[in-house]
Design a protein around this nucleic acid. Structure first.
Lengths: 209, 209
DNA sequence: CACCAATGTCACCGCGCGGTGACTATCGAG
DNA sequence: CTCGATAGTCACCGCGCGGTGACATTGGTG
């Protein structure tokens, strides 16, 4: 079998994978602006008709891309980061910092987030499913597995607000290099992280375990 | 003079204004996705060549639109809202709530915010100038005119984070009806507002003046 | 009046897009 | 070897886009 030759594979599975990979590369490189059947086919060095044959069009390709790619951080990753984050601050604050870092480290995720803000087409809706529940899962497991106790505070509203702020700043950091007068260099990110820790310490009480 | 007739005005000023108004309507209605010389000209019932003649292309038209329209809330509006917000919470928290309401009430502003997240073209950069300084102006005037004292807290980082969260949630509320498990109905907005007030009360101390 | 600059209209160009039908190449089954 | 299904190519369509040149219309000035 001529594994490494250029051009067609005569292997549907490989072609499908090539198209999905091309989609991922395009989104990572250019975002969603220039995403289309022509662009994907060019990137994959395959004919665009295959997108229609194998995926029933761009929608299906995006759907397959969404299933194949873990562009979203997992709850485990967040908890791991929070646990490594020392013990001088409240666990929930450390979770938010871990979330900030996880999102920042995922260019693909940032593009998806930006896409979700920009328009509401069928393409975007496909990618939203799994992750709206991440917040709930995080708080639920924080309570059951890590013994976090919340009382007297609308924790969903506060964490939602913080997650929203994290999304906004990280997404915009793709283009701009400052927000609200704070440069988005390593020092600026540290300041935002400290702000997150401080807010939850003051809200929920620092817990020097 | 046939003031109210359909069609050409034979009046450059009026035509320019018509094009700018058409731009505003289009952005408010469809966002920036379908914005282009053809669409604007159609909306204005004028020929697109005038966009090139009078504004040197779409860039210039957007620039003129940015100058002509006050799509951004003013510091005065925020202070007014904060002062009307009672005295049971810290002034900075009330300012953030006023900011949330001001942004929410401006569909045009939400579209611009969404646009800024989505891509970084010359068109977007034009609209960014005046407002990056709003945060600084607000905090500066809060300190000098309202006697707000901040110490021991990175207030820029905290307010930046909150403003970012406000931007994200309001922008997404154009399409979705919930975030982090909180419905974006009147009750949901109240919860976010309460969260803002609570955070700044805990951070800066409630000041029942 | 004649003239001219400015205003606005119209027809057209090249391009890349999404989408499709007809064709060829490959490979395994009988 | 033959045949048929599958994988992949190619040429083409209509459309809307950004952009431009040639023309028609208007209104003020001498």
């Amino acid at each position: 079998m001529a594994e490494s030759r250029r051009g067609p594979f005569h292997d549907r599975e490989r072609s499908e994978k090539a198209l999905i990979d091309a989609t991922r590369r395009l989104i990572a490189r250019n975002g969603f602006k220039k995403l289309g059947v022509n662009a994907v086919a060019r990137e994959a060095c395959l004919d665009k008709v295959l997108i229609y044959r194998y995926f029933d069009g761009l929608d299906g390709l995006i759907r397959a891309f969404g299933k194949s790619t873990d562009f979203w951080p997992t709850a485990d990753e967040i908890f791991r980061g929070a646990l490594e984050g020392g013990d001088r601050h409240h666990f929930v604050g450390r979770m938010m910092v871990a979330y900030l870092r996880a999102v920042r480290a995922r260019p693909l995720t940032l593009e998806i987030l930006a896409w979700e803000m920009a328009d509401r087409t069928s393409l975007v809706e496909i990618l939203e499913g799994a992750r709206e529940s991440l917040g709930q899962e995080l708080m639920g497991r924080a309570i059951t597995e890590h013994g976090i106790v919340i009382e007297g505070t609308d924790i969903a509203a506060v964490t939602g607000l913080m997650a929203a702020g994290i999304h906004y700043i990280t997404v915009r950091s793709r283009f701009i290099d400052g927000f609200n007068g704070i440069a988005l260099d390593e020092d600026g990110w540290r300041r935002y992280e400290s702000a997150l820790l401080l807010i939850f310490d003051r809200l929920l009480g620092a817990e020097p375990e």
